[in-house]
Simulated scan of single mutants.
Amino acid sequence: MSVLSFAAINKQLSLSRRLFLGGSLAAAALPATASAEEAPPASALKARQLPARSLPVPGTVSEGLQAVIAAPYPPGWNALPEDSATWKDLAAKSAAGAAPAIAAIREHFGLTVDQTTMGGVPVFVITPQDIAPENRNRLLVHIHGGGYVLFPGEAGAGEGMLMAGYARCKVVSIDYRMAPDYPYPAALNDVMAVWGVLLAAYDPSKMGIFGTSAGGALTLCAIHRAKAEGIALPGAIAPGSPLADLTWSGDSIMANAYVDNALVSRRSWANAASTLYAGQNDPRDPLLSPIFGDFSGFPPAILTSGTRDLLLSDTVRTHQKLRKAGVTAALQVLEGQSHGQYLSPFLPETDEAFGEIAKFFSDHLAS
């Protein structure tokens, strides 16, 4: 595919790229409602009052990413569905909106995508045309994002396709059950079921697990649960911008409110979706909010976020806890990016982000 055709694809997919990110929804049918930002419980110290300001698009990123950063907030970002039918309609819109980007990624990398089941769970097996020699016996396991409610079916496999293309490694992307029909622990149960099947076929030291947002959180939760149950751990993990704290208490939740143009603020659909997923369970349970768990014995990890990411604090805090537990952990924070925007296909920054993750897996997985 030529450079010119890449440019044409990027122009045509200006909307679908945002839909693909997991924080940007085709929610135009839902009326956006303005409301004041409410801070989570804080200390008695006085909050800092900030003057109104205009936030420029940084000139320190590629032109393509500048267009992503300059985009307005997603339509209906804070219009919260009131019933299951509306949540399901939102999920259907997310899948339809992601479809053009999914097709373009598959074509660009020349991927074969096969749908099957493992342990009764739907999965997509993604195989690049040319698997790197060192990856012939390796496998990467992908857990998609979308707040535990969005991107059903192949729409959730886009990040897995990107990784298969960049890493030149086979990927299994898990199409786990989601809220509202299947709240916690359905998604985690599905991840563990697939992991159990794969352990029968692969050496765990030759497998890695990765995902972004809810997928990043599920990556961490799967390790907590595998540790507790004495199940073999993967050789490395790559949780991207993990939704690691369902109390939504990190500093960047407020500091990057309305700076992040994907999730926007804690008053968004994503907060409501995480509450829907958790149900009546304690949000501080490490299998819901992995930040509250014990990170000792975790496999090597690389974490990815952006300077404008609403969940930057979740990512940084997770990295700190891993390091304090003696775990090998890398952190890449990408210039100007809001939540999950390193998933935007065909940008130089995407090449760089996935290149770092692919190298980390290559360095830490057994061959």
Rank of each mutant, 00 (worst) to 15 (best):
S54Q: 13
T127C: 03
D175S: 14
Y202D: 08
R138I: 08
R323Y: 09
V316W: 11
G297H: 05
P128K: 03
S313H: 09
A330T: 12
A164F: 07
N261S: 08
Q129E: 13
I174E: 01
T307E: 15
A167D: 13
A95D: 11
L150D: 08
R323Q: 11
S213H: 08
A358N: 11
I223T: 08
E356D: 12
A200M: 03
P75L: 02
A42G: 10
W248Q: 02
F292H: 08
W269V: 15
P152D: 10
A201Q: 15
R284G: 00
H224C: 03
G97S: 01
T86K: 08
T350D: 02
A232D: 13
P81L: 01
G240K: 10
D351P: 00
E229W: 00
A200H: 11
M254K: 11
I237W: 14
P122F: 13
K11A: 15
G110H: 01
L303A: 01
G158F: 03
E63N: 13
F295K: 05
P100L: 03
V3P: 13
V259L: 11
A238D: 14
A164V: 02
A36F: 07
G165T: 09
H339A: 04
T315Q: 07
N281G: 00
G145Q: 05
E82Y: 03
A92V: 13
P185C: 02
V68P: 09
D89H: 06
L65W: 10
S289D: 00
F354W: 15
D314M: 04
D309Y: 07
I143Q: 06
G153V: 06
V123C: 12
S84P: 04
L312P: 07
A52K: 14
V3H: 14
E349V: 02
L25Y: 14
G145K: 06
D309P: 05
K321G: 08
I253N: 06
W248P: 00
S173H: 10
V191E: 02
G165S: 08
F292Y: 13
T307F: 13
S268I: 00
Y202L: 06
G235Q: 14
L312Q: 15
P100I: 02
E82V: 06
P185G: 03
P31E: 15
I131G: 11
A26I: 04
S14K: 09
T112Q: 13
E335W: 08
S289Q: 02
G279F: 01
I209S: 00
R18S: 03
V172G: 03
D245Q: 05
A101M: 04
F298Y: 14
G22S: 03
L21W: 08
N10L: 14
W195P: 02
A238M: 14
L65T: 10
K206I: 05
P31Y: 10
W248E: 03
T318S: 13
D83W: 06
A325H: 10
A71V: 07
G97T: 04
P234D: 14
G336R: 05
E134W: 10
